[in-house]
C-alpha cells in the first residue's frame, strides 16, 4: 500500500523530467552563433539545463506530493511523525550536489580554457569605447583607425579593449563573448568569427544616459573582401586624413 503512491510519484517526476528536459532543449535560447566559441558555450549551457531540470522537478514533485498526500484532513489536530533526522539521507544530499557542482565546474573550466586558447595568425583589433560610441584600430593594417568593425571570416581575432572615460562592456551576442572596458586597463578577448553576416556590437555595462543606444555594427566578411576593405580604408585614411573609411560594397 505504502509503496504505491510513492511509485506513482516517481513515475510523475520521471515524466515531468523528460518533458521538462525536452522542452528546455527544444527552446532556441541563443541568438545565431557566429564564432567558434558559440558551439562549446551553447553545449555547456544545454548540459547545465539537464541537471537543473532534474533538481527543479524533484523539488516540485516532493512539494506537490506532500501537499496532496499529507494534507491534514479537516479537523485533524494531530501531529506528524516525530522524525528528527537521518544521517544517511543527510550524507547523501551533501555528497551528491557536491559531486554534481564539482563536475560542472570542471567542465566549465575546460570550456573556458578552450575558448580562451591562444591561436596562431591572430588579427589584433583595438577597441576603444567612449560615451557613447565605439572606435576601432587595426595595428596590423598600418594603424588603421576607423569607426567600422570589419572582420575576416575564420581568422582568429584578439580584441584589445580600452576606454576613454567610464566602464562600458564590449559585447557581440552572436560571438558569445564580452568584456568590460576599464579605464587604465586593456582587457583582451579572443574570438574566431566563423559565419558571415552583420551583427550588433552592444554596450552591456551601464555607462550613462546613452547606454541603451550605444550600438554599432560588426561585419564578418570573406577574407578577400576584408583585404579589399582594409586596403581601401588605408588609402582613404592617408589621402583624406579622415577617420571614416568607406562602406564596403
Amino acid at each position: 500500500m505504502k509503496g504505491h503512491p510513492l511509485a506513482r510519484m516517481v513515475l510523475y517526476s520521471v515524466i515531468a523530467t523528460i518533458v521538462g528536459t525536452v522542452l528546455v532543449l527544444v527552446i532556441d535560447w541563443f541568438p545565431t552563433g557566429a564564432s567558434t566559441a558559440a558551439g562549446p558555450i551553447d553545449r555547456l549551457y544545454d548540459v547545465l539545463l539537464v541537471p537543473s531540470v532534474v533538481i527543479f522537478v524533484l523539488v516540485m514533485t516532493v512539494v506537490i506530493y506532500c501537499a496532496v498526500k499529507f494534507r491534514a484532513k479537516p479537523g485533524d489536530l494531530g501531529d506528524g511523525a516525530p522524525i528528527h533526522g537521518s544521517t544517511r539521507l543527510e550524507i547523501f544530499w551533501v555528497t551528491v550536489p557536491f559531486i554534481m557542482v564539482t563536475a560542472l565546474a570542471v567542465y566549465g573550466w575546460v570550456v573556458l580554457d578552450d575558448i580562451e586558447a591562444k591561436q596562431p595568425n591572430t588579427l589584433i583589433v583595438g577597441v576603444r569605447a567612449q560615451q557613447f560610441a565605439w572606435r576601432f584600430t587595426y595595428p596590423d593594417e598600418g594603424d588603421l583607425k576607423t569607426n567600422q568593425l570589419v572582420l575576416p571570416k575564420d581568422r582568429p581575432v584578439e580584441f584589445r579593449v580600452t576606454t576613454n572615460d567610464v566602464l562600458h562592456s564590449f559585447w557581440v551576442p552572436q560571438f558569445r563573448l564580452k568584456t568590460d572596458t576599464v579605464p587604465g586597463l586593456t582587457t583582451k578577448i579572443r574570438v574566431t568569427p566563423n559565419r558571415e553576416g552583420r551583427y550588433d556590437v552592444v554596450c552591456a555595462e551601464l555607462c550613462g544616459i546613452g547606454h541603451s543606444t550605444m550600438r554599432q555594427a560588426v561585419r564578418v566578411v570573406a577574407p578577400g573582401e576584408y583585404s579589399a576593405w582594409s586596403a581601401q580604408a588605408k588609402k582613404q585614411q592617408k589621402t583624406v586624413g579622415g577617420e571614416t573609411p568607406p562602406e564596403p560594397e
Partner: peptide
C-alpha cells in the same frame, strides 16, 4: 567559480531538509 558553485551544497541541505520535514507531516 568553484567556491560559488559550492554554495549549492549548504543551500541544498536546507531545501532537502525542508522537503524531508514535509514528508509524513500533517500539512495545513
Amino acid at each position: 567559480m568553484i567556491t560559488t558553485m559550492l554554495i549549492a551544497v549548504p543551500t541544498g541541505i536546507k531545501i532537502f531538509s525542508w522537503l524531508a520535514t514535509l514528508w509524513r507531516g500533517v500539512i495545513h
